[in-house]
Each structure stands twice: as C-alpha cells, then as structure tokens.
Design a protein around this nucleic acid. Sequence first.
DNA 1: TTGTTAAGCGGAGGGAGCCTCCGTATCTTC
DNA 2: GAAGATACGGAGGCTCCCTCCGCTTAACAA
Lengths: 218, 218
Amino acid sequence: MIYIAGMDDHTDQTRKPRADAVRNRERVLEAAKAVFNAGGPEASLEAVAKRAGVGIGTLYRHFPTREDLFEAVYRREVEQLSELAEQLKNAKDPVDALRRWLRSGVEFVATKKGMVAALALAVQSGSELYAFSFERLTKAIGSLLDRAAAAGAMRADISPEDLLRAFFGMCYMHDQPGWQSSVLRMLDVFVDGLRVQPAGKTKARAAKPAKPAVKRKR
Amino acid sequence: MIYIAGMDDHTDQTRKPRADAVRNRERVLEAAKAVFNAGGPEASLEAVAKRAGVGIGTLYRHFPTREDLFEAVYRREVEQLSELAEQLKNAKDPVDALRRWLRSGVEFVATKKGMVAALALAVQSGSELYAFSFERLTKAIGSLLDRAAAAGAMRADISPEDLLRAFFGMCYMHDQPGWQSSVLRMLDVFVDGLRVQPAGKTKARAAKPAKPAVKRKR
DNA sequence: TTGTTAAGCGGAGGGAGCCTCCGTATCTTC
DNA sequence: GAAGATACGGAGGCTCCCTCCGCTTAACAA
C-alpha cells in the first residue's frame, strides 16, 4: 500500500503502512527536491533514486510517473504562495496588495529554481499538478484582483487567468543574469497598466519602481 | 566540406561543394522544421534523419549539436520578425507601432509552434542562436521603443531587453486554449502601463482592446 | 516470541534516443 | 577514366527510461 499524506486514517480494514515504505517515500521526496532544483525538471530519475539511497524500482512504485513526483514535491510550495494572497487581503491599498503578491512570487521563484520549469513542463503535458496549481493560484490572484476592481482602482476586464499566465511567463525567462530586477520592473509597468487612472490626475505613474530607473543602453 | 548558406563564394582554393551534400543539408533542414514544429524541440533527431531520408551520421555531420539544427531552422524566422520592426518605423503613432509589432509577434508565434519552445530551450542552454535572436529582436524593439520615448509618449526607463523578456514569457504559455487572445489582452495592458499619460487627460486607456472586454468569471 | 503473509525492496533487462567512428560509396577534378 | 577528396550510412557504445519479478522485511496474530 502506498502511503498518502493526509490519509492516515487507516481505521478501516487496511493495514498500518510499513515503516520502511514511509521512510523511503520521504527520502525520495527530499532527494527529488534537491535534484530538480539543481538540475531542472529533466534531471535523471535514477540520480534521484541513487541520492535517496533506494532502488529505481522503489522510486517508481511510489511515483509511477515523473509528473507524480513533481506533484508531490511542488504542491506544498504552491500552497504557500496561495496563502500569502489570503494574508494580503487585509492590506489597505488593494492595488498595492496585488503588486506585493506579484513581487513575492518573483522572490519565491528565485529561491526555488526548479519550480517554474517544472510548472512549465506540467503545462505542456496537461498534468494534474498543473490543474491544481493553476486553480489554486488563479483563486489567489482572483481575490486580490476582485478587491481592487471593486474599489474602482483597477480595470475589470482582465481575468486572473490572464494575469497568472503573464506572470509565469515573465518568470520563466529566469535563467539570464539580471532577470529578477527585470521582472520586477515589468511587473510595475504591468500593474500601472491595470490601474484605472483617477480622473484629473496628471502624474503618469502612481507607484515607485522597484529599483531606481536604469539608464537605457540603446 | 560543409556548405554554409551565404558563403558560396568558393573562389579561393576551396573545392566546389558536393551536390549530394548540399541536397542532403536542405532535406534535413526541411525535415527538422516539420518535426520540430509538430513535436516540439525535444523531438527525436533520428526521426528527423529518417524523415529526411538520410542516415543519422549525415545529420550529425551537418549539424553537430541539436542547437546547431535549431539555429539553422529558426534564424530566418527571427529575421522576418526583425524586418517588420523596420517597416513599422514609418508609422505615425510610435506607441501604436510598438503595439502592432507585439501583436504581429503573437501571430507569428501562433503559426510557428516550435519556435518559442526552441528559443526557450536556447535561453537555457545559452546557445549562439539565443544570442543572435536576442540581439536581433532587442534591436528591433529598441528602435520602436526609442522612437516612442523620444516623442515623449512613453516612459524611458524600460529597456528593450526587459520588454522582450516579458513578451516572450507571455507567449511561452501558448499551449493552453485561448492563449492568443489572453496574450493580446495582456499586451494591451502592458502598453498602457508603458504610456506616459498626457497631462490633464482623464481617460484610463488610450487604445481599444484587441477584443471586446470579456466578462470576468470569478 | 515466533510464524505467517502481505507489502515493499532492488536491480536486471529490454527499449529508445544520443552521438561517434570508420569502412564504403560517390562526387569533383584533372 | 583515374585519383583523391568528400560525404554517406549505420553499427555500436552509452545513458536514461520504465517494467517485472524473486527476495526481504515489517506488521499482525497467536
């Protein structure tokens, strides 16, 4: 029997899961996290098994497909990001709350190198992880977006799906030097574009950029 | 000797390239274009060779690495996109010219499914193709951006590199249904964010959206 | 404790794709 | 037509994928 987190109510006729199975599952997860973050989502599964100190068969029994492994590794990470949106609901300025969430997302991506690549792969393979993540993050963005739109501070014709897609896309290019500040700049532009300009105001931009404006080279 | 397009001035001591070599090179390119566009950039090179009707060795002799093959296939495509920017330089409204270029880019991506994926891969591997494309497209965007900034219609602290990254990022998520209209919407928001709002004007958005605004679901 | 048995373990092995190498075939040149 | 340069094809060695199955071990019962 495969142990599934959150399903430990084995009160029925099922046996208690074997201790070694639980242990090995945890080891594989730990190893996969490390290996994916280092070598990207195409890293060798045999390397994961070796790092975990288990046979390749054990790995496949717990996670029959590559996507299953991704899913287990990254599901919690997505939830963290989602919870942040919940907290930001209480911020005063709804536009700023959205901006802050997006920035946190960038930071998050920066520390979990493998995640965006894994998600990008999940998009293409149409896996269950993708559906979960997309649904979860869409809801997170949606709540922030709704609040801002309800307050009349932001245009209402942009869906959370649109925004999420744009956000992930920008982060996807995160292998180049300086990607992080570039994405932050772009997000500022984006949020500015989303703003409904207060009537009569003359200033072009309502928010400070993430960094002092960089002198253009070209 | 390997025949390289645009280098047929074999007036020196070099021999005329063999006819079969030229023919095979062309066949491989044609096959690769088809196979990559259909199956993505991870498609089997042996499949390409088979489709081209040549041995795998022949393929590797002409294109020692996967990236070399991408490069040959997609270099011209990038140039097309770059030339479009040249033409748009003559448009009256510089902001609109930028917007039009970005939209054309979306259409372009829509018809060449394999290209974005190939470029994304090229980014990660830091290949020569990427350097070429990035440089070329950066220049294209840069010229449009400069014109708009010089006319005072657009903020000047965004680099062409930033914009290109954002654009490609958005397009990268192009496997989902409805991606195209989503990206068009996002680009409109983005360009709005780039605009310097004329003093005293009260309208929030200066351009019509690509499609009638969609009623939000959430 | 000890025996029974289901659950889990490891890794051999077949398959697919990558890339190299070299004997053979073909083209160019004289 | 002969010689020599050039290119061809695919066998073969490698890595990784994933499956399958005989052996081991932990849980439970007595």
